[in-house]
Amino acid sequence: MGDAVAKAALFEGFAQVGKALASAKRLELVDLLAQGERSVEALAQAAGLGLTTASNHLQVLKQAGLVATRRQGTKIFYQLAGHDVAALWALLRQVGSAHLAEVERARAAYLGPGDTEELTREELQQRIAEGGVTLIDVRPSQEYAAGHLPGAVSIPLDELAERLAELPGDDTIVAYCRGAYCVLAHEAVRTLTARGRRAVRLAEGMLEWRLADLPVVR
């Protein structure tokens, strides 16, 4: 029979991971890091946190082994500790959406009405092979630089309305963003269709693309 103290320590180790994820803001930081490495300052700005608060949250994630760091000069950069951390985040979202009605209600309220057409990854790849498609990445430019889908053009959502002339008039525009729970692609499609352009969105996003081990351009 195993030692009771060792068993307790084992489960306490598992609990440390759960405790680290038991914060909405820390989960948001994990979601941002699933897009690629970022500095503390960039993470704080993206998550709407003060620098000290962001650093404290990141330290909790680091102590649980969920993120890793590197130093460049005076700056500290964070990244997810492994592919499995991104997979854990994706699974946590899936379980929450499937088993908690309030999560699904919040998702619908955040993403808005089902008024945007979507494509699966397989459908996107087929449409690109057939031609007549322009793929746009509507995430912030630093996320695009950290890794994007092959052939994608960076047009952040806040620049889209001013850069419509850059998009071929006859193509179907396919927008994608961070993942299945990211509102940016929904808003991009709404912006494009309101201006008479043919637009659809990728049903998932960069997180799911990476987890599927599909090619990423950096």
Rank of each mutant, 00 (worst) to 15 (best):
A22R: 11
A22H: 13
A22N: 15
S23L: 11
S23I: 09
S23T: 12
S23W: 08
S23K: 06
S23P: 01
S23E: 09
A24F: 14
A24W: 14
A24P: 10
K25N: 11
K25T: 13
K25L: 10
R26Y: 03
R26T: 10
L27I: 08
L27V: 01
L27R: 12
E28V: 14
E28L: 15
E28T: 14
E28F: 12
L29Y: 09
L29R: 05
L29H: 04
L29E: 05
V30D: 03
V30L: 14
V30W: 05
D31Q: 14
D31E: 15
D31K: 11
D31P: 04
D31V: 01
L32G: 04
L32K: 05
L33M: 07
A34Y: 08
A34F: 11
A34D: 15
Q35L: 15
Q35W: 04
Q35K: 10
G36E: 10
G36N: 04
E37H: 03
E37Y: 09
E37T: 09
R38H: 13
R38A: 11
R38K: 13
R38S: 12
R38F: 10
R38W: 06
S39L: 00
S39G: 11
S39M: 02
V40T: 12
V40D: 00
V40A: 07
V40Y: 00
V40F: 00
V40E: 10
E41I: 08
E41V: 08
A42L: 12
A42T: 14
L43S: 05
A44M: 04
A44C: 09
A44N: 04
A44H: 07
A44Q: 05
Q45N: 06
A46D: 13
A46P: 00
A46I: 04
A47T: 06
A47W: 04
G48V: 02
G48R: 10
L49H: 06
L49R: 06
L49D: 08
G50N: 00
G50Y: 03
L51S: 11
L51H: 13
T52M: 04
T52G: 02
T52H: 08
T52W: 08
T52L: 09
T52I: 09
T52E: 15
T53H: 06
T53A: 14
T53F: 05
T53P: 01
T53C: 03
A54E: 07
A54L: 02
A54G: 05
S55F: 07
S55C: 02
S55T: 13
S55L: 08
N56P: 01
N56K: 10
N56E: 11
N56D: 14
H57S: 03
L58H: 06
L58M: 11
L58G: 02
Q59N: 12
Q59H: 09
Q59R: 14
Q59L: 13
Q59P: 01
V60R: 14
V60H: 15
L61I: 07
L61E: 07
K62D: 02
K62I: 05
Q63F: 12
Q63Y: 09
Q63H: 12
Q63A: 13
Q63G: 08
A64I: 07
G65P: 00
G65Y: 00
G65N: 04
L66R: 01
L66Q: 00
L66Y: 03
L66G: 00
L66T: 01
V67K: 01
V67W: 01
V67I: 10
V67H: 00
A68P: 09
A68R: 14
A68H: 08
T69L: 02
T69N: 00
T69D: 06
R70L: 10
R70K: 13
R70S: 13
R70V: 09
R70H: 12
R71C: 01
R71N: 12
